[in-house]
Protein backbone atom coordinates (compact mmCIF):
# COMPACT_ATOMS: atom_id res chain seq x y z
CA UNK A 1 0.00 0.00 0.00
CA UNK A 2 1.28 3.36 -0.97
CA UNK A 3 1.96 5.55 1.99
CA UNK A 4 0.10 8.80 2.07
CA UNK A 5 2.29 11.80 2.77
CA UNK A 6 0.10 13.62 5.22
CA UNK A 7 0.54 13.24 8.94
CA UNK A 8 4.23 13.92 8.57
CA UNK A 9 4.95 17.52 9.53
CA UNK A 10 1.94 19.69 9.92
CA UNK A 11 -1.69 18.79 10.47
CA UNK A 12 -3.29 19.36 7.05
CA UNK A 13 -6.00 21.97 6.81
CA UNK A 14 -9.54 21.04 5.93
CA UNK A 15 -10.81 23.37 3.16
CA UNK A 16 -13.52 24.71 5.46
CA UNK A 17 -11.24 25.21 8.46
CA UNK A 18 -11.14 28.94 7.82
CA UNK A 19 -14.90 29.15 8.48
CA UNK A 20 -15.13 26.99 11.60
CA UNK A 21 -13.86 27.54 15.10
CA UNK A 22 -11.48 24.64 15.03
CA UNK A 23 -10.84 24.82 18.76
CA UNK A 24 -14.44 23.68 19.31
CA UNK A 25 -14.19 20.75 16.90
CA UNK A 26 -15.04 17.84 17.30
CA UNK A 27 -18.54 19.17 17.75
CA UNK A 28 -21.20 17.73 20.03
CA UNK A 29 -23.34 16.13 17.31
CA UNK A 30 -23.67 12.36 17.64
CA UNK A 31 -21.94 9.92 15.28
CA UNK A 32 -24.11 9.59 12.20
CA UNK A 33 -26.00 12.83 12.79
CA UNK A 34 -26.63 14.74 9.58
CA UNK A 35 -26.45 18.24 11.04
CA UNK A 36 -22.69 18.34 10.51
CA UNK A 37 -23.14 17.57 6.83
CA UNK A 38 -25.82 20.22 6.38
CA UNK A 39 -23.63 22.65 8.30
CA UNK A 40 -20.66 21.94 6.07
CA UNK A 41 -22.89 22.31 2.99
CA UNK A 42 -23.97 25.68 4.37
CA UNK A 43 -20.37 26.77 4.87
CA UNK A 44 -19.41 25.60 1.39
CA UNK A 45 -22.36 27.56 0.02
CA UNK A 46 -21.32 30.67 1.96
CA UNK A 47 -17.92 30.38 0.32
CA UNK A 48 -19.29 29.64 -3.13
CA UNK A 49 -21.87 32.42 -3.11
CA UNK A 50 -19.18 35.10 -2.94
CA UNK A 51 -21.16 37.27 -0.55
CA UNK A 52 -19.22 39.46 1.84
CA UNK A 53 -18.62 37.20 4.82
CA UNK A 54 -17.64 40.16 6.96
CA UNK A 55 -21.24 41.25 6.64
CA UNK A 56 -22.82 37.85 7.13
CA UNK A 57 -24.38 36.76 10.39
CA UNK A 58 -25.50 33.28 11.29
CA UNK A 59 -28.33 33.08 13.78
CA UNK A 60 -29.59 29.92 15.36
CA UNK A 61 -32.00 28.96 18.07
CA UNK A 62 -31.99 26.16 20.60
CA UNK A 63 -31.60 22.51 19.80
CA UNK A 64 -28.89 20.34 18.35
CA UNK A 65 -28.66 22.39 15.16
CA UNK A 66 -28.66 25.56 17.23
CA UNK A 67 -25.07 24.77 18.11
CA UNK A 68 -24.05 25.69 14.57
CA UNK A 69 -23.84 29.37 15.48
CA UNK A 70 -21.14 28.48 17.98
CA UNK A 71 -19.03 26.62 15.47
CA UNK A 72 -19.00 29.09 12.62
CA UNK A 73 -16.20 31.63 12.50
CA UNK A 74 -18.42 34.52 11.47
CA UNK A 75 -20.53 36.86 13.49
CA UNK A 76 -23.16 34.63 14.99
CA UNK A 77 -25.95 34.58 17.52
CA UNK A 78 -27.16 31.66 19.54
CA UNK A 79 -30.55 32.97 20.55
CA UNK A 80 -33.38 31.97 22.85
CA UNK A 81 -35.63 29.07 21.94
CA UNK A 82 -37.63 29.65 18.77
CA UNK A 83 -36.48 33.25 18.46
CA UNK A 84 -33.80 32.92 15.82
CA UNK A 85 -35.96 34.59 13.16
CA UNK A 86 -36.98 37.59 15.31
CA UNK A 87 -33.32 38.16 16.21
CA UNK A 88 -32.39 37.97 12.54
CA UNK A 89 -35.23 40.35 11.66
CA UNK A 90 -33.93 42.83 14.20
CA UNK A 91 -30.40 42.55 12.87
CA UNK A 92 -31.60 43.12 9.33
CA UNK A 93 -33.71 46.14 10.23
CA UNK A 94 -30.96 47.74 12.27
CA UNK A 95 -28.35 47.12 9.63
CA UNK A 96 -29.86 46.38 6.22
CA UNK A 97 -26.42 45.65 4.76
CA UNK A 98 -26.13 42.37 6.61
CA UNK A 99 -26.74 38.99 5.03
CA UNK A 100 -28.70 36.83 7.43
CA UNK A 101 -28.50 33.08 7.62
CA UNK A 102 -30.82 31.40 10.10
CA UNK A 103 -29.63 27.86 10.75
CA UNK A 104 -31.88 25.95 13.06
CA UNK A 105 -33.89 22.84 13.61
CA UNK A 106 -37.49 21.87 12.93
CA UNK A 107 -38.53 22.08 16.57
CA UNK A 108 -37.06 25.51 17.02
CA UNK A 109 -38.33 26.98 13.75
CA UNK A 110 -41.72 25.33 13.46
CA UNK A 111 -42.89 24.39 16.94
CA UNK A 112 -41.90 27.07 19.43
CA UNK A 113 -40.88 29.51 16.71
CA UNK A 114 -43.67 28.70 14.28
CA UNK A 115 -45.34 32.07 14.51
CA UNK A 116 -42.13 33.94 13.87
CA UNK A 117 -41.49 31.88 10.77
CA UNK A 118 -44.97 32.61 9.45
CA UNK A 119 -44.65 36.34 9.97
CA UNK A 120 -41.13 36.70 8.66
CA UNK A 121 -42.22 34.88 5.49
CA UNK A 122 -45.32 37.05 5.23
CA UNK A 123 -43.25 40.22 5.48
CA UNK A 124 -40.69 38.77 3.11
CA UNK A 125 -37.76 39.59 5.36
CA UNK A 126 -34.54 39.32 3.43
CA UNK A 127 -32.93 36.24 5.00
CA UNK A 128 -32.07 32.63 4.30
CA UNK A 129 -33.60 30.08 6.63
CA UNK A 130 -32.05 26.62 6.68
CA UNK A 131 -34.10 24.12 8.62
CA UNK A 132 -32.44 20.87 9.57
CA UNK A 133 -35.37 18.51 9.86
CA UNK A 134 -34.53 15.42 11.88
CA UNK A 135 -38.19 14.54 12.46
CA UNK A 136 -38.14 14.74 16.27
CA UNK A 137 -36.91 16.73 19.27
CA UNK A 138 -33.45 15.22 19.25
CA UNK A 139 -31.72 17.18 22.00
CA UNK A 140 -34.36 16.65 24.66
CA UNK A 141 -34.63 12.90 24.18
CA UNK A 142 -36.63 12.17 21.06
CA UNK A 143 -40.13 13.42 21.83
CA UNK A 144 -42.73 13.69 19.10
CA UNK A 145 -42.39 16.93 17.13
CA UNK A 146 -44.50 18.87 14.67
CA UNK A 147 -42.62 17.15 11.86
CA UNK A 148 -42.65 13.53 13.08
CA UNK A 149 -44.22 11.39 10.35
CA UNK A 150 -47.54 9.64 10.97
CA UNK A 151 -47.12 6.40 12.95
CA UNK A 152 -43.43 6.98 13.64
CA UNK A 153 -42.34 5.97 17.11
CA UNK A 154 -40.90 8.44 19.58
CA UNK A 155 -40.43 8.60 23.35
CA UNK A 156 -43.83 10.17 23.84
CA UNK A 157 -45.62 8.09 21.18
CA UNK A 158 -44.27 4.58 21.79
CA UNK A 159 -46.98 2.93 19.67
CA UNK A 160 -46.77 5.37 16.77
CA UNK A 161 -47.47 9.03 16.18
CA UNK A 162 -51.20 9.68 15.79
CA UNK A 163 -50.67 13.22 14.46
CA UNK A 164 -50.04 14.31 10.93
CA UNK A 165 -46.83 16.30 10.41
CA UNK A 166 -46.36 19.74 8.92
CA UNK A 167 -45.69 20.04 5.25
CA UNK A 168 -42.93 22.60 5.64
CA UNK A 169 -42.49 23.73 2.00
CA UNK A 170 -46.25 24.22 1.66
CA UNK A 171 -46.30 26.24 4.83
CA UNK A 172 -43.39 28.41 3.69
CA UNK A 173 -45.02 28.96 0.30
CA UNK A 174 -48.42 29.72 1.77
CA UNK A 175 -46.88 32.28 4.12
CA UNK A 176 -45.12 34.05 1.28
CA UNK A 177 -41.55 32.75 1.05
CA UNK A 178 -39.90 33.59 -2.26
CA UNK A 179 -37.57 30.62 -2.44
CA UNK A 180 -38.46 27.15 -1.18
CA UNK A 181 -36.40 24.01 -1.61
CA UNK A 182 -36.04 20.67 0.11
CA UNK A 183 -33.09 18.27 0.02
CA UNK A 184 -31.73 15.57 2.25
CA UNK A 185 -28.27 15.46 3.76
CA UNK A 186 -27.40 12.87 1.13
CA UNK A 187 -28.06 15.23 -1.78
CA UNK A 188 -25.25 17.48 -0.66
CA UNK A 189 -24.30 19.02 -3.96
CA UNK A 190 -27.89 19.98 -4.73
CA UNK A 191 -28.28 21.23 -1.19
CA UNK A 192 -25.14 23.36 -1.49
CA UNK A 193 -26.28 24.76 -4.83
CA UNK A 194 -29.68 25.54 -3.39
CA UNK A 195 -28.21 27.32 -0.38
CA UNK A 196 -25.87 29.29 -2.66
CA UNK A 197 -28.80 30.33 -4.80
CA UNK A 198 -30.86 31.26 -1.76
CA UNK A 199 -28.02 33.33 -0.29
CA UNK A 200 -27.70 35.33 -3.48
CA UNK A 201 -31.43 35.86 -3.72
CA UNK A 202 -33.17 38.67 -1.94
CA UNK A 203 -36.28 37.92 0.01
CA UNK A 204 -37.24 35.14 2.37
CA UNK A 205 -35.62 31.87 1.30
CA UNK A 206 -36.40 28.61 3.01
CA UNK A 207 -34.48 25.37 2.61
CA UNK A 208 -35.47 22.21 4.40
CA UNK A 209 -32.71 19.64 4.81
CA UNK A 210 -33.78 16.20 5.99
CA UNK A 211 -31.22 14.67 8.25
CA UNK A 212 -31.02 11.45 10.23
CA UNK A 213 -31.13 11.45 14.03
CA UNK A 214 -29.69 8.01 14.73
CA UNK A 215 -29.72 8.19 18.51
CA UNK A 216 -33.24 9.37 19.19
CA UNK A 217 -35.34 8.89 16.07
CA UNK A 218 -33.48 6.08 14.34
CA UNK A 219 -33.10 3.89 17.40
CA UNK A 220 -36.84 3.91 18.15
CA UNK A 221 -37.77 3.29 14.54
CA UNK A 222 -35.24 0.53 13.95
CA UNK A 223 -33.17 2.55 11.56
CA UNK A 224 -29.40 2.58 11.69
CA UNK A 225 -27.85 5.80 10.33
CA UNK A 226 -26.91 4.09 7.09
CA UNK A 227 -30.44 2.64 6.73
CA UNK A 228 -31.76 6.16 6.94
CA UNK A 229 -29.41 7.30 4.17
CA UNK A 230 -30.39 4.31 2.04
CA UNK A 231 -34.01 5.23 2.62
CA UNK A 232 -33.30 8.75 1.39
CA UNK A 233 -31.60 7.29 -1.64
CA UNK A 234 -34.44 4.90 -2.46
CA UNK A 235 -37.39 7.08 -1.63
CA UNK A 236 -36.19 10.40 -3.00
CA UNK A 237 -38.08 11.71 -5.99
CA UNK A 238 -36.44 14.79 -7.45
CA UNK A 239 -39.13 16.96 -8.90
CA UNK A 240 -38.37 20.64 -9.28
CA UNK A 241 -41.34 23.01 -9.25
CA UNK A 242 -43.60 20.35 -7.78
CA UNK A 243 -46.92 21.49 -6.37
CA UNK A 244 -46.21 22.35 -2.69
CA UNK A 245 -49.41 20.68 -1.52
CA UNK A 246 -48.04 17.29 -2.58
CA UNK A 247 -44.90 17.51 -0.47
CA UNK A 248 -45.88 15.68 2.72
CA UNK A 249 -43.15 13.55 4.17
CA UNK A 250 -44.34 10.01 3.77
CA UNK A 251 -41.58 7.46 3.43
CA UNK A 252 -44.04 4.91 2.04
CA UNK A 253 -44.85 6.84 -1.09
CA UNK A 254 -41.54 8.65 -1.41
CA UNK A 255 -40.28 12.06 -0.47
CA UNK A 256 -40.25 14.75 -3.12
CA UNK A 257 -37.10 16.84 -3.24
CA UNK A 258 -36.16 19.80 -5.33
CA UNK A 259 -36.50 23.50 -5.72
CA UNK A 260 -40.18 24.26 -5.56
CA UNK A 261 -40.62 28.00 -5.49
CA UNK A 262 -38.47 30.78 -6.90
CA UNK A 263 -40.34 34.08 -7.06
CA UNK A 264 -39.52 37.74 -6.90
CA UNK A 265 -41.38 39.94 -4.51
CA UNK A 266 -40.34 43.26 -2.91
CA UNK A 267 -38.86 42.68 0.52
CA UNK A 268 -40.05 44.23 3.75
CA UNK A 269 -37.17 46.69 3.82
CA UNK A 270 -37.98 47.93 0.33
CA UNK A 271 -41.61 48.57 1.30
CA UNK A 272 -40.55 50.13 4.57
CA UNK A 273 -38.02 52.43 2.95
CA UNK A 274 -40.55 53.51 0.37
CA UNK A 275 -42.97 54.67 3.03
CA UNK A 276 -40.82 55.67 5.99
CA UNK A 277 -37.24 56.23 4.80
CA UNK A 278 -37.49 57.70 1.31
CA UNK A 279 -34.04 59.29 1.70
CA UNK A 280 -32.40 55.85 1.84
CA UNK A 281 -34.37 54.72 -1.13
CA UNK A 282 -32.65 56.96 -3.66
CA UNK A 283 -29.34 55.21 -3.13
CA UNK A 284 -30.61 51.69 -2.74
CA UNK A 285 -33.69 50.71 -4.66
CA UNK A 286 -34.24 52.90 -7.68
CA UNK A 287 -36.92 50.70 -9.27
CA UNK A 288 -39.41 51.25 -6.45
CA UNK A 289 -39.01 54.98 -6.56
CA UNK A 290 -41.19 55.57 -9.57
Amino acid sequence: MQEIPMTSKKQPQHPLDDLIRTDRIPHIWCPGCGIGTVFSACLAALKASGINLQKTVMVSGIGCSGRAAGYVKLDSFHTTHGRAIPFATGLKLANPELNLVVFSGDGDLFAIGGNHFIHAARRNMDMTVICVNNLNYGMTGGQVAATTPYMAKSTTTPAGNPELPFNLPLMAYACGATYVARWTMLHIRDLTDSITEALCKKGFSFIEALSPCPVNYGRRNKQKPLDMLKLYQEKAIIKNHADPSTLDIDFEKGIILGKFIDLDRPTFIEHYDKIYRPSRLQENVPELNS
Binding site: P12, H14, P15, L16, D17, I20, I25, P26, H27, W29, G32, C33, G34, I35, G36, T37, F39, S40, A41, A44, M185, L186, I188, R189, T192
Partner: peptide
Protein backbone atom coordinates in the same frame (compact mmCIF):
# COMPACT_ATOMS: atom_id res chain seq x y z
CA UNK B 1 -18.78 16.93 1.64
CA UNK B 2 -20.63 14.06 3.32
CA UNK B 3 -18.39 13.99 6.38
CA UNK B 4 -20.30 15.61 9.25
CA UNK B 5 -17.10 16.07 11.23
CA UNK B 6 -14.81 18.01 8.86
CA UNK B 7 -12.48 15.04 9.24
CA UNK B 8 -11.73 13.96 5.68
CA UNK B 9 -10.89 15.79 2.49
Amino acid sequence: IICPEFAIF
